[in-house]
Design a protein around this nucleic acid. Structure first.
Length: 577
RNA sequence: CGGGGUGUGGCGCAGCCUGGCAGCGCGCCUGUUUUGGGUACAGGAGGUCGGAGGUUCGAAUCCUCUCACCCCGACCA
């Protein structure tokens, strides 16, 4: 590609709305442009890298025995009504009507369509297992798109769906996908972790996320160096040492204190001069119309996913609705404004996190405006209905599996694998006949990879202050040639020669034939991030050499013009593996 | 959805408070200059000031409504 006529609009300045480095560099480097919030154009360079990522994913999916299909972006409401998700999915599902007034949506995921596609076709156990995938644009009307390609509303995803005869076989399919995802992340050069995860509203029971480690990631994960247990903080189980208060601690008498107009833990903590870990937070939730209280230590975070699992598994509650109580409901339950809720004389079920069990003489809200209690003790001043692990894990917590100490990381979720079971096949009547002639629902799994999110994640892990540093596997071009003096015919001719010979050898080559100064060419080359750079200057050319430099480091190397072609080919081939 | 903010040539911004010629830097075009990390000078093109309504002799500026976008909190590939 010749830059003189290429559509590669680079910029000197960061886009004002960009927060993270991948968004800044993709925009400045001429890879993407925003069309409207959460929706992007992929310019020629950006699209080349997207297609390379797609191709790697495609190769690994095919190798794992999956078959590629393409489903529509526009989906009829009937299928969603059949699965029950038309009412459950919420405003993230973009809905609209056709000219006849029939309901449609833009596909945020494709369980319904794929189940519809195979039902009536996969009718015998002899046809199974089958795994189908597609690479296609999804649309989710995210409440808050941000960070460029990391959380768009329209994004490219690879989604795969497996169909098996029973759970055992389905878990084999799951493991095959799990391995394929590891392979894909390795080929893309990611530093990543496969972590145990929540299943969200896709449904199902077993699930792993593939998290690329990056400080800008939106997810928090913890990992135990002792036993290798790694999980999203939403899910990670925490071991609590011992039980109850430390022996010999003297229990003080509960006392009310005035706390005028201080509500949050930080405010009260500062006001009373006590650290947050001597507070107990009282959070009110509404479960199916009933108000409940959840207690966690002041410096801990309650975890709605654990709470949900606890209510379902330990309390046997069929959860229709679980949400934080509204201001009005808080007032009803505590007869105080928001910010002063506490467990003393609170007439709702009280579920407390295990960490609270070890606390004594702590501070709680007094269920009255501008008042808190100090020296509060569970068992003395209030009763806890049930103790449970209800908080989010964090670095330094004890591993729930082995008692080791968790390390915390931030991650970008680029992939997610689910064991679905028969959730969709049952609701949508996708059955097959087993070897005994019995009708059985297909057992399913589903597997997603955010292709365009991966593009952003690669840059988050591969950049410096000057720009992108592409891994050879996904760079839009392998090598860039910079003839530095555009009025020097010998320099330009040498550029043309290298461009032709390297292209003829099968490499993807960029030639900066623009009529501009050397400085601008160097700046753009660093920004755009092509891994191999060959600079041709008038003086060094007279000495019979050109200058080779790799984007990921090292010094400029002078290479005789007769050797440069073979040398570059060697570098590119060795890096492509 | 809740809270905070911004909309002015392609990009980044000033002007608004206190109404009176629509400006600056970058980029772009022409010429000269420079020729190894965004050279310098001169000339030039390009804007319904997000939109609608109102106040006024006069509105980018004041008022009302509206739309869009950004940032901080609950979701997900």
């Amino acid at each position: 590609m010749r830059l003189a006529t290429a559509f590669m609009p680079t910029r000197k300045e960061d886009p004002v709305e960009a927060e993270v480095v991948s968004h800044k560099l993709l925009t400045r480097g001429g890879y993407i442009r925003m069309v409207t919030r959460g929706i992007y154009n992929f310019l020629p360079l950006g699209w080349r890298s997207v297609r390379k990522i797609e191709q790697i994913v495609r190769e690994e999916m095919d190798r794992a025995g999956a078959q590629e299909v393409l489903m529509p972006g526009v989906q009829p409401a009937e299928l969603w009504r059949e699965s029950g998700r038309w009412d459950k999915y919420g405003p993230e599902l973009l809905r609209f009507q056709d000219r006849k007034g029939s309901d449609f949506c833009l596909g945020p995921t494709h369980e319904e369509v794929i189940t519809d596609m195979v039902r009536g076709e996969l009718t015998s156990y002899k046809q199974l297992p089958v795994n189908l995938y597609q690479i296609q644009a999804k649309f989710r009307d995210e409440p808050r798109p941000r960070f460029g390609l990391m959380r768009g509303r329209e994004f490219i995803m690879k989604d795969a769906y497996s169909f098996d005869v029973d759970e055992e076989s389905a878990l084999k399919s799951y493991d095959i996908m799990f391995e394929a995802y590891n392979k894909i992340c390795e080929r893309l050069g990611f530093k990543f972790r496969a972590v145990e995860a929540d299943t969200g509203n896709i449904g199902g029971s077993r699930s792993h996320e593939f998290q690329v480690l990056a400080d800008t990631g939106e997810d928090e994960i913890v990992s135990c160096p002792e036993c290798g247990y790694t999980a999203n903080v939403e899910l990670a189980s925490i071991k609590v040492e011992g039980h109850g208060r430390p022996a010999g601690v003297h229990l003080e008498t509960i006392q009310p204190v005035d706390t005028p107009d201080v509500r949050t833990i930080e405010e009260v903590s500062e006001f009373l001069g006590k650290p947050a870990d001597q507070f107990v937070k009282t959070l009110l939730y509404v479960v199916n119309e009933e108000t409940i209280a959840v207690l966690v230590r002041g410096d801990h975070e309650a975890n709605e996913i654990k709470l949900r699992a606890f209510l379902r598994d330990e309390r046997g509650i069929e959860i229709e609705e679980l949400r934080m109580a509204s201001d009005v409901e808080v007032k009803e339950a505590t007869s105080a404004p928001v910010g002063f809720a506490g467990p003393v004389n609170l007439h709702v079920p009280v579920y407390a996190d295990l960490a609270v069990q070890e606390m004594a003489n702590f501070v709680v809200g007094a269920n009255a405006a501008d008042k808190h209690f100090v020296n509060t003790n569970h068992g003395e001043d209030f009763d806890v209905t049930t103790w449970a692990d209800l908080r989010q894990a964090r670095g330094g917590d004890k591993c729930g599996r082995c008692g080791g100490t968790f390390q915390a990381y931030r991650g970008i979720e680029v992939g997610h694998v689910f064991y679905l079971g028969t959730k969709y096949s049952e609701s949508m009547n996708a059955n097959f006949q087993d070897e005994n002639g019995q009708q059985k629902p297909l057992v399913m799994g589903c597997y997603g990879i955010g292709i365009t999110r991966m593009l952003a994640a690669i840059i988050e892990q591969n950049h410096d202050e000057n720009g992108i540093i592409w891994p050879m596997a996904v760079t839009p071009y392998h090598v860039t040639i910079l003839p530095l003096q555009y009025k020097n015919d010998a320099v330009m001719a040498e550029g043309e020669r290298l461009y032709k010979e390297l292209s003829d050898a099968g490499l993807e080559v960029m030639l900066d034939d623009r009529n501009m100064g050397a400085g601008g060419k160097f700046k753009d080359a660093d920004l755009v991030g092509i891994p191999v750079r060959v600079a041709i200057g008038g003086r060094s050319l007279e000495e019979g050499v050109v200058e080779l430099k790799l984007r990921d480091g090292g010094e400029v190397e002078k290479v005789p013009v007769g050797e440069i072609v073979d040398k570059v080919i060697g570098i590119v081939q060795s890096r492509l593996g």
